[in-house]
Design a protein around this nucleic acid. Structure first.
Length: 273
DNA sequence: CGCCAGGACGCCC
DNA sequence: GGGCGTCATGGC
């Protein structure tokens, strides 16, 4: 990975990153592809900092209008560019299925997202599909000037006042998460530092947060790479390819492996067959 | 009309 | 502790 400073932003080169796969693989819901003359261009934000980023070609990216300070202070970390994924993928490739998943989806990087946004996003994700999740989050941010609302802001809402989200039965869960977070009964920054079993337990005290959502918050919002969300797709992977259990050599980075496997299984020609 | 979607809850035994 | 119906909403 290298970068240079240009008048129109930061040019990132030799980066092991596939932008479309990373931003549209179901780990984040607030990035949107927009038309451009580049391979692809996405608009989104992290902690109220907007970004427009284009993939120019394989390994090369333009972060439009971004200063070096913002690149080093925010986006380098957000895209997890300080981590070397090649060694990781080399390890994964000892396993046949993981090897295929790496070949197919190895351009995905684990974004270092905001834990609060992640918590609400994955509460909304339960028994839901990705386009509708994006729609609900879009309406939520749209009513807050395009920014993701804070816990304090959301704690003033009620399931009734959130009806415009059309989030269904999840509205009461959003409210509980907001109340707990705003009041400090749940401290996400502290949860992020807890031993993982304790962190899971703490997250699951929030109404509407079960094993799957807790694991997603740990993985995507707290960068706990040993967290391993099991949804219907991953359940199929485990039953089909790992009846003896998931390989222990990948345990410390099981969450990243899970990302590759999720993307791989969902795009297998013929679905699960 | 039915089924499903990056599940969790409440209730049953 | 596991099994099962229910929970809103929308796309197919």
């Amino acid at each position: 990975m290298d970068y240079s400073i240009r008048q129109d932003g930061i040019l990132l080169s030799e980066a092991d990153l596939d932008l479309a796969e990373t931003l549209d693989c179901g780990q984040a819901f607030r990035w949107a592809e927009i038309p451009s003359d580049y391979e692809c261009t996405f608009e989104g934000s992290f902690l109220n900092s907007p970004l427009r980023i284009s993939q120019l070609k394989r390994g090369e990216f333009l972060l439009h209008g971004v200063s070096e300070a913002d690149f080093l202070g925010k986006w380098l970390s957000y895209f997890d560019l300080e981590t070397d994924y090649s060694e990781l993928k080399r390890q994964f490739s000892e396993d046949e299925t993981l090897s295929k998943a790496c070949s197919f989806a190895g351009g995905i990087r684990l974004l270092r997202q905001d834990s609060w946004e992640c918590l609400i996003s994955f509460i909304i994700s339960q028994n839901n599909n990705i386009p509708r999740i994006k729609g609900i989050i879009g309406r939520l941010c749209g009513s807050h000037g395009g920014l993701f609302p804070t816990a304090e802001e959301l704690s003033a809402e009620t399931p009734e006042s959130l009806s415009y989200l059309r989030s269904g039965f999840r509205a009461k869960y959003i409210c509980d998460a907001a109340e707990r977070t705003a009041s400090g009964r749940t401290e996400l920054s502290a949860v992020a530092e807890m031993p993982i079993a304790e962190a899971r337990k703490s997250l699951m005290e929030i109404k509407g947060v079960g094993p799957k959502v807790a694991e997603c918050v740990l993985l995507y919002g707290m960068h706990r790479t040993d967290a391993f969300p099991v949804d219907v797709w991953i359940k199929r992977v485990l039953e089909r390819y790992y009846p003896q259990g998931f390989p222990s050599f990948a345990a410390a980075n099981a969450g990243i492996a899970q990302q590759y496997l999720f993307h791989y299984i969902r795009n297998l020609p013929g679905g699960t067959e």
